[in-house]
Design a protein around this nucleic acid. Structure first.
Lengths: 257, 257
DNA sequence: CAACGCTGTAAAGAACCGGTCACAAATCAG
DNA sequence: CTGATTTGTGACCGGTTCTTTACAGCGTTG
């Protein structure tokens, strides 16, 4: 596994050879691994291939493409669950505003009119990068193996045990529990949980959290009324109940992706 | 005073009539009272008029404006002390990044590239709203861990202990105690407490404070008549009694983001 | 000492919040 | 494409919390 293989990947799709080379150089200088395609079909093929590697940072797409429209590519990306939230920077001639609008509606994140200055491009790319990095941190799951009383949560192998017995949680439930246990016995405010689960500008009902907490409690085997594990602090948030037992909270920091 | 008059106000300045109507509908559905202007001068005039009402929640400004630049409006808002910290969401055409950057430098909080999806706008607006709401509440609660005699208040963990035993307080009670203990043994005037709890322009009966203090005292285990913790200074305010014990008041400044 | 203002105490109603559940919508697996 | 799982929403309920109101006690002041 050589060094290049660990760098974040950028996919660039454009039919102008010159531009492609320019972008490739520019972005590689910024520390990305750049993969290119020259038309829509090739682009989709490339994206498929990249999905497997799981390191796609963002995509730069020209709108005017032979064989397949750039907008098709935007749609394609937004449909693949593995790369759904990858930021997309769209390039197009100044003239076609229609397509520009369409692309943004389909989910492109930013837009750059050709021709552009390299400074401008780099600036945009950095902005996108920052944004994705931020939202990823927000929705991230604390890493490690945590124990608290009869609860064990191992985020590495995605496993939860309550008094030895393994239980199955949905992704959201899992993340809630992971956050709670990673905080030891301390309160997490509703607000913080919302951000942790759905990002800074979440668009779901805050009430939704109650529902997930509820189903999580059910799976943990809580008896309604008296929580053994998840404690409600009205008007504030939730916290894992300190059972007072062998409360060995331990985070194994071994695996940072 | 009709119902509408109590809703938070949003000011929208844009020269496109369609967009203005769209935004007005959208935001009114979200529960805001929407006031609009079509150019910079009108915007300033409108803002002046709104300042008096004191319920301005945030402003949405187009950057490309006839008569006066949107950036002028940003500057204007940031100079008015009454609305200095009102969040500003800036709209701009995708193309002019320069202005966008400038606007952010002048103090705009977020920007949205035109055209945008209504979902996106609503999400941003909510995020802004929450952010301002949160920081307003946060700023009124002193941060850190405070000890005084047998009392411990940890605002980070949302925890209160009296002689080791944890007690549960409602949000308001918690904030009262946090303020008192953060002042060490010094008086906090009723007036200051009112502002800290309900904001600069509170609308509740001042007597309400007595009630909360009373229930707080009960939870602390005060014996009526002789306050061990919260001392009343008639005509002035309250203060935490200096028990003379191991009065180690300490603020841990750990968490400043 | 009477009147007043300020605070403590108590209780009642309103507003709010969270728990519970059923169902709809979105997503995923085969 | 179909069925299963997961996620999100609306409705309802019960309890908590907030606010108002009433009244009692007490200190201050005239």
């Amino acid at each position: 596994m050589n060094e290049q293989e660990n760098r974040p990947i950028v996919v660039v799709v454009d039919d102008e050879e010159d531009l492609l080379i320019l972008l490739k150089n520019l972005l590689e200088r910024e520390g990305y691994q750049v993969l290119t395609a020259r038309d829509g079909d090739e682009g989709i093929w490339l994206l498929r291939r990249v999905i497997a590697r799981g390191r796609l940072k963002f995509a730069i797409l020209d709108l005017m493409l032979p064989v397949r429209d750039g907008i098709d590519l935007v749609r394609f990306i937004r449909k693949q669950k593995e790369i759904r939230d990858v930021p997309i920077l769209v390039l197009s001639a100044v003239s076609d505003t229609d397509k520009r609008v369409l692309a943004l509606e389909e989910g492109a994140d930013d837009f750059l009119a050709k021709p552009f200055s390299t400074r401008e491009l780099v600036a945009r790319v950095h902005a996108l990068d920052r944004r994705v990095e931020q939202t990823r941190q927000e929705s991230t799951v604390p890493r490690g193996r945590f124990e608290m009383g009869s609860l064990i949560v191992d985020t590495g192998r995605h496993e939860v045990r309550v008094s030895g017995r393994e239980i199955r949680l949905t992704p959201i439930e899992f993340r809630i529990l992971a956050h709670l246990i990673s905080q030891g016995g301390f309160v997490i405010e509703r607000h913080a949980l919302m951000i942790a689960l759905w990002g800074e500008d979440w668009e779901v009902e805050e009430h939704n959290l109650n529902v997930h907490i509820w189903s999580l409690r059910k799976k943990l085997g809580e008896t309604p009324g008296e929580p053994k594990y998840i404690e409600t602090l009205r008007g504030t948030g939730y916290r894992l109940k300190d059972t007072g037992e062998s409360t060995s909270v331990r985070a194994v920091s071994g695996e940072n992706r």
